[in-house]
Computed example of a mutant assay.
Amino acid sequence: MEIIPAKLLRIYLKEEDKYEKEPLLELIVKILKKNNVSGVTVLRGLYGHGMRGTSRIDIIRLSMNLPIVIECVEYEDKLMKILPKITDIIGENGLIHILDVEVVKK
């Protein structure tokens, strides 16, 4: 067994966030895939609150701008190469969080 240091990239958005009319979530996943970042996962939250307000299902207004989290685990050097581009397209629309993690390999 081998333990390898890596980084967990976590990006918080809202479902309806866009960059030049393209859904931000799809654009970020495309960038990660194009740069061979492994193990990208997108999670949809039921409820969230942050600087841009509260996100939740609103049946009365038929609104579903729910919180989204994009996660991936990768080596630091690879993430640092694409982080400036991701930061630029997210702008004020989200939050980027990076954590130290350890990957266990057989």
Rank of each mutant, 00 (worst) to 15 (best):
I68H: 09
V104N: 00
L32Y: 07
E2W: 00
E92K: 15
R56H: 03
V40W: 02
I11K: 06
K30L: 09
L13N: 07
I11N: 09
G53D: 05
T87P: 08
L99K: 15
M80K: 15
G53I: 06
I31H: 04
L24F: 05
D100E: 11
H49A: 13
I60E: 11
K14H: 04
V103P: 06
I82S: 15
P5I: 00
E92F: 13
K78M: 12
I57F: 05
T41S: 03
L83E: 08
I96M: 07
G94C: 11
H49V: 12
G94S: 10
L79G: 10
T87E: 13
V103S: 08
L27Q: 10
K85E: 15
G53H: 05
L8T: 00
L83T: 03
L95K: 14
Y47I: 06
R44D: 00
I60W: 02
L32E: 09
D77V: 07
G53F: 04
E102M: 12
K7Q: 12
L32F: 08
V103M: 11
V101G: 11
E92H: 14
G48K: 04
S55V: 01
I4A: 02
L83G: 05
Y12F: 10
I96Q: 08
H97K: 11
N65Q: 07
E15K: 13
V101H: 08
V37L: 05
V103K: 12
D100V: 04
D17M: 10
P84D: 12
Y75I: 14
G94M: 09
L24Q: 02
I98F: 02
L8K: 10
P67G: 02
V69P: 01
L46G: 03
K18D: 14
Y47M: 02
D77I: 10
V42I: 11
S55H: 01
K30F: 07
G48L: 01
A6L: 07
V101R: 08
E26N: 14
S63R: 02
I28F: 12
L32S: 06
G53Y: 05
V29Y: 08
K30Q: 13
T87G: 12
L9F: 01
K34Y: 08
K78Y: 13
L25P: 03
L66T: 06
E22P: 03
M80I: 12
P23N: 12
I70L: 12
N65C: 04
I59G: 06
K30V: 09
E26Y: 10
V73E: 05
E76R: 15
K78P: 08
L83K: 09
E22H: 13
P84A: 11
I57T: 00
L46D: 02
S38Y: 05
A6I: 04
